[in-house]
Simulated scan of single mutants.
Amino acid sequence: MRLENIVLDAGDPGRVGRFWEAVLGGERLSDGPEGFETRLPIPDGPVIDLCVQPVPEPPAEPLRLHLDLLGGDRQLELVDRFLALGARHLDIGQGDVPWVVLADPEGNPFCVMEHRDVYCDTGPVAALPLDSADPERDCEFWSWLTGWTRADGVAPCSLRHPSRRGPLLELCPEPAPKGRAKNRVHLDVRLDPGDDADAVAAGIVERGGRELDPGWGDLPWRVFADPSGNELCVLPAVT
């Protein structure tokens, strides 16, 4: 299994997707009624796509997963560039912090980070902070699910692709328990050829997750929640 997609909900996937492609310098894979997909530039690292999928209503809270973008010495220059592309400043109660909080064209928050040594070789997305009721437990869950391993970071537990390239997956203490609303950003995991989908589903449940029925009919993928309730999708292997 491998982490394949970062998925954002949007009312206008093309508009939001083209914004993010310009921000990240991605390679476009698709742009149509089913959504927008662009590939993150991570030389010699994992293959991760940013997908923007259509939803019938504007995304709402909670925001339990977001993107922290690499800023470093170019932080203010990049903030200006992102504002010119359609972002806006956003106050989510962050106070006086060294990073800058912005929103994409549909209001999805993201951060442009200051320099941190742990962001070496991440590519444009430095980190993926994910709310967790128990970061140590969820770290073990996501490590098993993705094959990523523990890495130095600022969160209680951080995971990274074995190549030590690409973003950190940061398990962060949640400010409040997961509610009933669907996360506006989630992760997709892709099965490898030979993986048994039912065995993976059983493994998710054994580790504290659960399978969900979103009521979307017959889908080629399966929807789950991690032990803290964060939605994720398990995609079939590509043959």
Rank of each mutant, 00 (worst) to 15 (best):
W144S: 07
A133K: 01
H186F: 09
P135C: 10
R164T: 02
G123N: 08
D213W: 00
R160W: 00
D96M: 05
L102V: 02
G107R: 10
V112P: 14
W221A: 02
L219S: 13
A225I: 03
Q94A: 14
W144P: 11
W144V: 09
V154D: 06
T122F: 04
A133H: 06
V125F: 06
D195F: 02
T149S: 12
H186C: 09
Y119A: 14
T149W: 03
G95N: 06
S158C: 14
Q94Y: 04
V200I: 11
K182S: 14
C111G: 11
T149L: 11
P135F: 05
E140M: 08
D104A: 05
L212P: 12
M113K: 07
R222C: 15
R116F: 01
G147K: 04
V154L: 13
L128H: 07
D218E: 15
D134C: 05
G194R: 07
A202G: 14
G203N: 12
H186G: 06
L212I: 15
G209R: 01
A199M: 08
P162W: 02
D192H: 15
D104K: 02
A199K: 14
G203I: 07
P173H: 05
E211F: 04
P124L: 03
G123S: 09
K182P: 04
R160K: 07
P105E: 06
P162N: 02
D104P: 05
A176T: 08
V118D: 15
E136D: 15
V185Q: 03
G107I: 09
P156R: 10
D188N: 09
A181S: 14
L171A: 14
A126H: 00
V101K: 13
R137T: 13
V101H: 10
R184E: 01
P177A: 03
A202P: 10
A201L: 00
Y119R: 10
D218V: 14
V200E: 00
P220L: 14
E206R: 02
L169C: 06
A133V: 04
G107N: 13
L168R: 12
N108R: 07
R160P: 03
G107E: 11
L212M: 15
D121W: 11
W216I: 02
R165G: 12
T149A: 09
R137I: 01
